[in-house]
Every structure is written in structure tokens, then in C-alpha cells.
């Protein structure tokens, strides 16, 4: 393959967690690496870098996507919410609170992705039953085996929303 000299970086304007974020990135930088490295938002995790684990899930323009399979330059003008934007210690999102209550995490590495994924799923209104929620959350792997607690936490918040 031909070795291309590095193309000029491009300016990318995002809104991340409600605030404008300006990036100067080469096209080959994934949204995930831009978040973790350029913006130091390391709450979004890299578990495989190939769209096979869900740890890098962020909410982009209202929908959950995998930030590892997206180039940062493709998201110019987008609104991104990461785990840091959902809530902070002392001011948690209900699903973050539910994760604490249901002990829906162990090592914590899949957690950001599970929560972002769960929040977006609930907001999209998909997943009527527990079985459907399990299927719709299956893009987020958990190696610690916290599966039942994760689904418990999501069901608690989802059902709370429906009240």
C-alpha cells in the first residue's frame, strides 16, 4: 500500500455534554480516541475497538452508537453525550443511581457503555418486556457477569419512567 503523508488535520465542532468542543484531528482518529485522548473524557471505554463489546457506547444526536466505529471527522456538528455528561457524583442520572443500588457493575469497565446504552434505549421507547430489553442491551458485554443486576437496574428506571 502507498504510504500517504499525513493529511492536514481538520477542524471538527462538536457539542459534548452540552458544551462546545473544538477538535483538530486527522481523519484516521476515531470518535472514541478523540474523546478519550483529545478531550480527556476517559469515561468512554475502549474494550475492543472493533464494535464487538459496546464499552465505547455514547449518545450521538439522541441515539446510542459505537464511538470506536465512527471517525471523529464524520461527526462534525453532532451533539454527543458521554457518561460524564449524564451525571456526576452528587448529581447522578437515575440510571447511574440504579446501577449503585442494584450493584450492576463490578470492575466498572463496561459500565459507562451499559449506562449510556440503557439511557438511550429507554429514551427511544424500545424494549417492552424484560426479554426484549435483554436483547436490546446485548450489544453491551459484561465479563464480570453482572448481567442480571444490570437488567434489574434498567428495568427499575424504565418502569419508573412509565409510571
Amino acid at each position: 500500500m502507498q504510504n500517504i503523508p499525513p493529511p492536514a488535520t481538520r477542524s471538527v465542532s462538536l457539542r459534548v455534554n452540552g458544551k462546545p468542543a473544538q477538535l483538530e484531528v486527522a481523519p484516521w482518529v476515531s470518535l472514541l480516541d478523540a474523546l478519550r485522548h483529545d478531550l480527556d473524557l476517559t469515561g468512554t471505554k475502549k474494550g475492543c475497538d472493533h464494535g464487538q463489546c459496546g464499552a465505547c457506547t455514547v449518545i450521538c444526536d439522541g441515539e446510542r452508537i459505537l464511538s470506536c466505529l465512527t471517525l471523529a471527522v464524520m461527526k462534525d456538528g453532532s451533539e454527543i453525550t458521554t457518561i460524564e455528561g449524564l451525571g456526576q457524583p452528587g448529581n447522578l442520572h437515575p440510571l447511574q443511581e440504579a446501577f449503585l443500588e442494584h450493584d450492576a457493575y463490578q470492575c466498572g469497565y463496561c459500565t459507562s457503555g451499559q449506562i449510556c446504552s440503557g439511557v438511550a434505549m429507554i429514551e427511544a421507547g424500545h424494549g417492552k418486556t424484560r426479554e426484549e430489553v435483554k436483547d436490546l442491551m446485548s450489544g453491551n458485554l459484561c465479563r464480570c457477569g453482572a448481567n442480571t443486576n444490570i437488567i434489574d437496574a434498567i428495568m427499575a428506571v424504565k418502569d419508573g419512567n412509565h409510571e
Binding site: 460524564e84 451525571g87 457524583p89 452528587g90 447522578l92 447511574q96 466498572g108 459500565t111
Partner: peptide, 9 residues
């Protein structure tokens, strides 16, 4: 350490 883990900190 729960709050740190669920907030990405």
C-alpha cells in the same frame, strides 16, 4: 468506589 465507576471518573 461506586460513584466513580458509574460516572466514568
Amino acid at each position: 468506589e461506586g460513584e466513580l465507576k458509574v460516572t466514568g471518573q
